[in-house]
């Protein structure tokens, strides 16, 4: 491998991605970071105000509500989504008739634009016109304020997020399962390992990297949830169901407080990165413990 890894070859392999990424992602982030230190309303000239926007976040109750909602959604989604999508990948890998068609169908929700996902679930969760309460009414149960009330909205957003992501996560797990060395699997079943033992002792440990990929993707995706909230409740009542990005959108584009909005965006980016790094550190710590 060494002789193939000359310095200019490495540079040539990485440069296109690194240049495009730096120009269209990193440079814009730094640009917006600069704006987060200004008071900028969108139409007049920006005015430098140092850390004032970040300080103001501390006393902005809606920001804290949005943060709290995001954390609830993060915990509920990750705890439920990662194991269930893995289980689903295992299930749809078995030799059942039409497994391929089932996989395509399960992936269906992941294809729908988030804004439409939100719209579909409005017709399911809305306390008055939604499917769920119509069904409850048939059984004579009293209606539940699934969305738009004081408490349930973030949990419902988690459910919708899980629904729209499960096919996505399942596909990655499925690809990971396909890369497992079959001879090891065959050998272990010849050795008389039960399916459960094989799963726990062989499959899952060998899938560590895949679990990492799915978890990090889902963490960073939760931090980007916007359209679901926008369609389901518009962030209401009175910003009680905002997530960080939906609140950032409100501040930036509805309130036209561009500088303040960018400060929130910077915080969202840092939190997303911190959560991912935190997970990686956790996973690594565990690995070393085992080793």
């Amino acid at each position: 491998m060494t002789w193939i890894s000359s310095r200019w070859k490495i540079a040539l392999m990485i440069a296109p991605a690194a240049i495009l990424f730096s120009l269209f992602v990193i440079y814009p982030v730094l640009y917006s970071l600069g704006y987060s230190f200004t008071k900028f309303q969108g139409f007049s000239a920006p005015e430098f105000i140092g850390f004032d926007n970040y300080v103001a976040l501390g006393s902005d109750p809606f920001f804290w509500i949005a943060l709290q909602n995001t954390v609830i959604i993060l915990v509920v989604s990750i705890v439920l989504l990662v194991p269930s999508s893995f289980a689903l990948a295992l299930l749809l890998r078995t030799a059942i008739r039409g497994a391929g068609a089932l996989r395509a169908l399960v992936f269906g929700p992941a294809i729908i634009a988030p804004i439409l996902v939100g719209l579909i679930w409005v017709f399911i969760l809305d306390p008055k016109i939604g499917l769920l309460n119509r069904l409850l009414a048939i059984f004579g149960a009293s209606p539940v304020q699934w969305i738009g009330g004081d408490t349930l909205t973030p949990y419902m957003i988690s459910i919708v997020f899980i629904w729209s992501s499960i096919g996505f996560a399942m596909t990655i797990f499925y690809a990971g399962l396909q890369l497992l060395p079959q001879d090891v699997m065959e050998a272990s079943s010849l050795d008389g390992a039960s399916s459960w033992q094989q799963l726990r002792l062989i499959t899952i440990p060998m899938m560590k990297e895949t679990f990492g990929i799915v978890t990090i993707l889902m963490i960073t995706n939760v931090f980007k949830i916007f359209e679901l909230v926008y369609m389901l409740t518009g962030g209401g009542p009175v910003h009680r169901s905002e997530t960080l990005v939906s609140y950032m959108y409100f501040v930036t584009f509805t309130n036209q407080q561009y500088g303040y909005g960018m400060a929130i965006a910077v915080i969202v980016t840092l939190l997303g990165a911190a959560a991912s790094i935190g997970y990686l550190a956790l996973a690594r710590g565990k690995k070393e413990q085992e080793a």
Binding site: I14, A17, A18, F21, L23, F24, V25, I26, Y27, P28, V29, Y31, S32, I216, L217, T220, F223, K224, F226, V245, M248, Y249, T252, Y258, G261, M262, A265, V266, V268, T269, L270, L271, G272, A273, S276
Partner: peptide, 23 residues
Amino acid sequence: LRYYLLAGLAVPVYILLFPVYRL
């Protein structure tokens, strides 16, 4: 370098719109 590229995962798209337009 790997972490540099991965860092982009955490960036919400709305942070990019205005600068990318100018770019």
